[in-house]
């Protein structure tokens, strides 16, 4: 029973990590009065470039940098369209989601050859002193791209 509970809590925390990160970002844009519907697209883009960067350099931290940079580029274009050009935020968000889904699939097929079984270097596990000794020990820090993209899962 206790075992099951521990697994349940640990899974919840792990699966919640990407949601918490994404939601925090959305909170910032909501505060500024911008509805960012393309979180999904941004996460996909970041996941792809994170995996690509991590794979190309062999360094997962550079991968995270690539991921953030790629998502920033997407966000900048989106901001320009929906703020400067006053395009409908909902439409732009949906458009970017569609675009990101297509583009990452396409690039994945081109770069990773479609049939790759390559493993992507992932972030190390983080043990929190004290917490780690509890029976519910689990790692806390997660590479933000892992659950976002089901195409490549970079955290081994």
């Amino acid at each position: 029973m206790e075992e099951t509970l521990a697994i349940f809590i640990a899974s919840t925390l792990r699966l919640a990590m990407p949601l918490m990160l994404a939601a925090s970002g959305e909170l910032v844009s909501e505060r500024a009065g911008v509805l960012n519907l393309s979180l999904e697209g941004m996460m996909l883009t970041a996941a792809f470039f994170g995996a690509l960067g991590s794979w190309a350099t062999g360094n997962p931290y550079l991968g995270v940098g690539c991921a953030v940079g790629a998502a920033l580029c997407v966000a900048a274009v989106q901001a320009w369209l929906s703020v400067n050009l006053r395009a409908n935020q909902l439409v732009i968000g949906i458009g970017f989601n569609i675009l990101a889904l297509g583009a990452t699939t396409l690039l994945y097929r081109i770069i990773f050859g479609g049939l790759s079984r390559e493993e992507i270097p992932g972030l190390p596990k983080l043990s929190v002193p004290g917490l780690s000794d509890l029976p519910f020990r689990r790692r806390r820090l997660r590479c933000r791209s892992s659950a976002a993209s089901s195409r490549i899962a970079p955290c081994p």
């Binding site: 369209l81 395009a87 439409v91 732009i92 949906i94 458009g95 970017f96 989601n97 569609i98 675009l99 990101a100 889904l101 297509g102 583009a103 699939t105 396409l106």
Partner: peptide
């Protein structure tokens, strides 16, 4: 899919 996204945007 990419073309569709571009058209919407």
């Amino acid at each position: 899919v990419v073309i569709q996204g571009l058209i919407v945007i």
